[in-house]
Design a binder for these strands. Sequence first.
DNA 1: GCGCGTAAGTTAACGCCTGTAAGTTCACAG
DNA 2: CTGTGAACTTACAGGCGTTAACTTACGCGC
Lengths: 206, 206
Amino acid sequence: MVTTPRTRVRNKRGEGAQLRDEIVDAAMALLEDGSPQNVTLRGIARRAGISAPSIYPHFPDLDSILLAVAQRAFGVLEQELGAPNETDPVERLRAICVAYLTFAERRPHQYRVMFGAVWDAGQALERAPAMADELAVLGMGAFEVFRRTLADCVAAGRSTSTDPFGDATALWVGLHGFAQLQVATPLFPWPPGLRDSIIDRMALLR
Amino acid sequence: MVTTPRTRVRNKRGEGAQLRDEIVDAAMALLEDGSPQNVTLRGIARRAGISAPSIYPHFPDLDSILLAVAQRAFGVLEQELGAPNETDPVERLRAICVAYLTFAERRPHQYRVMFGAVWDAGQALERAPAMADELAVLGMGAFEVFRRTLADCVAAGRSTSTDPFGDATALWVGLHGFAQLQVATPLFPWPPGLRDSIIDRMALLR
DNA sequence: GCGCGTAAGTTAACGCCTGTAAGTTCACAG
DNA sequence: CTGTGAACTTACAGGCGTTAACTTACGCGC
């Protein structure tokens, strides 16, 4: 994160691209601490300490900023998923699932940008496929962590899965649904232990 | 659905409440056929054939319209989930799951309003809890269909579930995640048969 | 040291949006 | 047939995304 001085000093010649990162910084910060209705192009500009049109040399529109945010957020997610280093593959898989849910819970708006962008599809509906493509590629890195760890469980004889790819997908679907619904309907009487039962069943742990 | 004449005839005295329904009609129609960026207060008013301020005697703001839309959409969902009348409880449960996914697939923007409202939380972030409350209550009707049918499966000895409520919740989570992710990342190489394996595992069918 | 081209920003302005305030029309009671 | 109030309109304030035109000042060539 780059600190933004109250009165911005103009970047030096040839260093204008620095502002691009500062814009993404500002957007991520805005998404982290709060009200999503402030996540506007002008709001991002205010946070970055620049005027709104100064964004356009770096991004063609708001959606592109959010795509860059999603890109960075997927990187953070992948890193956090890769952090657990339990030697036991099942415990490691559980820790990874917890890390996934924790990410979604602590950064709900970033998570939403990562997995809801195609819905929003701001102005450019025809560009939604391109965004979907980008996001699919980005997500694969994080997904690979699930697939690989589940394969480790199978190799250790701790999962009865015969299709680690398919079952990792099922696990991901379950975790995503859980993360999303808990935010969407927090007043639902969520049964305790649901998280682990989802993990056990999707990963076919025994 | 109420047809909206090109030149609106003013409602009679005491029948002003009819306009409320026409506004919700217009919003639902807008959400069904397309671009979500047209779902604005003014867009709804245009579609309904009235001026934007005419909405305010009936709804305090845009979010309230969307809440009314979600209300009606939950009613439609509940009805569609109740339609399958297979005698075999397992087949009925499968048909219900398919109906759920079909609803989400064919009305993605309505589905999004139903389960994404708390995220958006337009202007009134402090009203999000109230909306979440409303939506939780609304969703219970549809959820009950799952719980009841799963209980039927257990009674018929076709599911090993010992906690129909918890397992119906798990099933719902799985279906929601599947519906949501398929729209969000359509380019992911979705494995065939994923849907049924989610249903089987979450409902503990045998 | 000193122009000066050009990168790095700015201010101004357009059209659309939400939401408010004040005005207009018209059905019906008396 | 006239007044009243519900139903609806026009007009406006402030915010948004985006474009165009303008200003500032860095650093290269001389």
